[in-house]
Design a binder for these strands. Structure first.
Lengths: 330, 330
DNA sequence: CTGAAAGCGCTTACAG
DNA sequence: CTGAAAGCGCTTACAG
């Protein structure tokens, strides 16, 4: 590989001058700068990043530990948000997938420590509490889509409650009066907080004759989860007679669309449907297209890396707002 | 940060001895090895990767250029397959997303060149031909899910034709006689080859009264594509009267399920449905669950990195077999 | 089995 | 404005 010395010899200057040109040192005389630039181009020279890092004693590496991420498609936006900004700031985002079967968090941290990572983003697949090894402490760390029990780290999580309040309020404002909210499992944070948000919207709404029915249709029988969405949607349409159904996540909306159609009803006409997540192509695959609250993963990824780039150390608990994606289902 | 010299001082040996222990040199006397190991643990020492790379003149980096990848969820398996093996072989997989708007291929290659990448995997979002800049040539490169026009690179792509032949043959063997294949756009390779595969299955099948109808339901009107799947599925069920429908990809199957239900028919009873891709959660979200040919992305990722790890240079054009995921839709 | 020297490709700190 | 020296944290090559 061509080195700084090869370029220097080719250009007829000291190799230190080449270094100056490479690092945009303005003190280089234009004549020399041009000679060097020409030689760099001629030899196709590129500074060796590893050597730069060694000498500078700065790695330029930011670690991204993705805990069980990427089993859900849109979570990749967390990485994308971080990566875009890392790139702009000349940092290397080193992404490590971690999961119970294969790679331990400890392994990932060791790896990043070996690379002298300047910061770490730890991201979870779904909004939850995490417990991180003590080992992390030497490196500035920020959590995305999760928060820690011990309060050692800054974190950003989606504002579940506000999202549910917003979409429920929107339904009420459109004139829907009887809303059935087929919620996620209420053991998880999204389930709990969205319930509270929907209730708040009803409490704030002045209209009368409004009724809210909330129930969890993701059943957690020990090891795995199963959905009773189809069953309960069908039953509720007969009994509770909702004019709108709010679904805990877009895949549930698919199930509800099938039920609605099977009962001879039309989404968006006989019954409104709303949802959460903006899950991959699902919302636009459905007809009418699904109005849903998009998770702010991209924003959270950006916020997290900005926190590190700005060398913040305050222990904020930040929330990120969902984006209402207005389509045609209610 | 603690360095090799700190460890040496703490252990009372030359720093070269620490280096030997770190690199598992068997010639170190057990007494000294243990002293060093104890000091490493006490000081929480970890070799500086950048310094190692600099001195060894090996980066240990393999680049993964993801062209517009990750807009389709399962394509992440390409990365996962490569990453798992990279990890095992102590290589760093440096993943770079490339897309028209933001990051150029040239930018990605420059980046990798600066890191002295030892090899590059170039992966496309969907099976297609690509044209790569001349710049790539100095580094061993292999293509995944795509192939190049010039024949400069080894590549691995999914065996589309065999996949279509297999699932069509399976339908025929189960007794289905009139199969409507709602194909992808036939401008793309998957569309072309799957058509050929379905036709081959019919040609090979001995049964009589069999009929195959193939048509593309993804219309390409200039800039964007639109699906006429619902429309054509409904019309064909009336006119061609298929007893089975094969869909070009799982999202199309969702559309067909809606059509089938709207006509008062039952998937798996009145009409069989098969598909391609194994797209995220779609196949199990449908009821009955969808039988589909899973794209071999994970395998292709593994094959590609193995090609590089084994320092192969032969210009193979490898194909990877889809996996038939047997569920209940036909 | 161990260590002192040289060197990887750069940047830092200093001299001129 | 430019260069020669020293040094980053390691490994290589060699001597003992």
């Amino acid at each position: 590989m061509v080195t700084i010395k090869d370029v220097a010899a080719h250009a007829g200057v000291a190799f230190k001058t080449v270094s100056r040109v490479v690092n945009n040192d303005p003190t280089v005389k234009p004549v020399n700068r041009n000679k060097v630039l020409a030689s760099i181009a001629a030899l196709d020279y590129r500074p060796n990043r590893a050597a730069q890092m060694t000498r500078r004693k700065k790695s330029g590496v930011i670690g991204f530990i993705a805990d069980e991420l990427l089993r859900v498609p849109y979570t990749f936006d967390l990485i994308r948000g971080a990566q875009d900004l890392a790139w702009k700031n000349n940092k290397e985002l080193m992404v490590l997938n971690v999961n119970v079967d294969k790679y331990s968090i400890e392994g990932a941290i060791n790896h990043l420590l070996g690379h002298r990572a300047e910061g770490i983003i730890y991201a979870a697949m779904y909004h939850r509490e995490v417990e991180l090894p003590q080992q992390l402490t030497p490196i500035p760390t920020v959590l995305a889509n999760c928060f820690d029990a011990s309060g050692r780290f800054a974190s950003i999580v989606p504002d579940e409650k506000e999202a549910a309040r917003e979409i429920t309020a929107k339904m009420l404002n459109k004139g829907y009066r009887r809303i059935a909210f087929l919620n996620l499992n209420e053991n998880i944070i999204a389930g709990q907080q969205r319930k509270a948000g929907a209730e708040q919207a009803f409490a704030e709404h002045k209209g009368k004759d409004c009724e809210l029915h909330i129930e969890s249709v993701i059943i957690d029988d020990g090891a795995n989860e199963r959905s009773v969405t189809r069953l309960r949607a069908a039953e509720l349409i007969q009994s509770f007679k909702p004019d709108a159904i709010l679904c805990g996540q877009d895949p549930m909306a698919v199930e509800v669309y099938f039920v609605v159609q099977s009962l001879g009803l039309k989404v968006g006409e006989d019954i409104g449907i709303g949802s959460f997540d903006d899950w991959d192509i699902i919302p636009t695959l459905l007809k009418p297209e699904l109005t849903t609250m998009a998770l702010p993963h991209y924003d959270m990824g950006q916020w997290a890396i900005n926190y590190l780039l700005n060398e913040r150390t305050d222990l904020v608990s930040q929330t990120a707002k969902f984006n209402l994606i207005n389509r045609d289902s209610f």
